[in-house]
């Protein structure tokens, strides 16, 4: 089904300016490029614009300026159905009616490929079964969503996205509300889908070690600007972490996965390292141990 013999689809932004109010841009003139088969993770502190960018990539919000291009065409000019056949998004905390079974949920992923006169058919059933199997949810397909654990439910939502047969999957903090074993379960699943099906993945993650371990490319964001972008080994530097995240720490190398790791030692946010509690912060950037942010 979704196995590599589809044409490559690219996702690109050009001078993307995003904001929630006129004149107040959260993200300015962003240039971002995602190639087919890549896992790209957006990292950055709260308020750096990660989720906003992801929403714009998924055409959930309109840019104030610039555009998102799906395969060279502006995503807001394409029909939303056509976009949904190429690109799927899993928002941060999706919510479904109580009485839905996993299978019923996943079947709704076929919406953009069905019409009023051509409801669910043979092909739809096959894709739903594939999506359930790919996420390991086939055994749980008749369970009601609210009877599932957090990790199972998240896999169910990923199965919904897969049922769209997308070439690009966007995920907003897919592991944030899960315990560590469920987090790994979800990340392993995403890695497998990427490796086996050539699915491009763009996601927002809070856990830097996870981001470094599972991504081909990291994009470190600071106040809506790209501070650094590239392979994890290049982006995950002590400098970047100090400037972007305002954390002093040590970057090492995971002996098992050979990916960079980060051990945070101390916050260097303006004022937070003031051990004397001095209210005078006018010259805090000149003090040793504090950094002006990017």
């Amino acid at each position: 089904m979704t196995n590599g013999n589809h044409p490559a689809v690219s996702l690109r932004t050009d001078n993307l300016t995003l904001g929630y109010r006129r004149g107040v841009a959260v993200v300015q003139r962003l240039v971002l490029d995602v190639a087919q088969g890549e896992i790209v993770t957006l990292v950055g502190p709260n308020g750096s614009g990660k989720s906003t960018i992801l929403r714009a990539l998924a055409r959930l919000m309109r840019p104030q300026d610039g555009a998102v291009y799906l395969d060279g065409k502006s995503i807001h000019r394409l029909s939303t159905r056509k976009v949904a056949q190429q690109l799927a998004i899993l928002p941060q905390r999706p919510d479904a009616p109580d009485d839905l079974t996993v299978r019923e949920l996943v079947a709704r992923g076929r919406f953009a490929r069905q019409s009023w006169w051509r409801a669910s058919g043979q092909e739809d059933r096959q894709v739903v079964e594939w999506a359930l199997a790919a996420t390991g949810m086939d055994a749980l397909q008749d369970r009601f969503l609210n009877t599932l654990s957090g990790g199972e439910r998240q896999r169910g939502w990923i199965a919904l996205a897969l049922a769209q047969e997308p070439r690009i999957l966007l995920l907003d903090e897919p592991t944030t509300f899960l315990d560590i074993s469920h987090q790994l379960e979800v990340m392993d699943l995403l890695q497998t889908l990427n490796a086996d099906n050539g699915l491009s993945i763009v996601m927002v993650l809070h856990d830097l070690n996870q981001a470094a371990r599972f991504s081909h490319r990291l994009v470190a964001l600071c106040k809506g600007d790209v501070y650094a972008a590239g392979p994890p080994a290049e982006v995950m530097t002590e400098d970047m972490l100090r400037v972007v995240f305002q954390v002093q720490g040590v970057v090492g190398r995971d002996p098992h996965t050979a990916t960079p790791t980060f051990t945070p030692l101390q916050s260097v946010r303006n004022g937070s390292s003031d051990r004397d509690g001095s209210p005078d912060r006018t010259d805090s950037s000149d003090r040793p141990g504090t950094v002006s942010s990017c």
Binding site: R81, A84, L90, P91, D95, F111, Q114, A119, Q164
Partner: peptide, 21 residues
């Protein structure tokens, strides 16, 4: 006629838009 769309809308605005509604 709107039942199919209404089912998608019930998943929330963001998910529904993502699904092509």
């Amino acid at each position: 006629v709107l039942a199919r769309q209404a089912n998608i809308l019930a998943l929330g605005d963001d998910v529904a838009r993502g699904l092509g509604l």
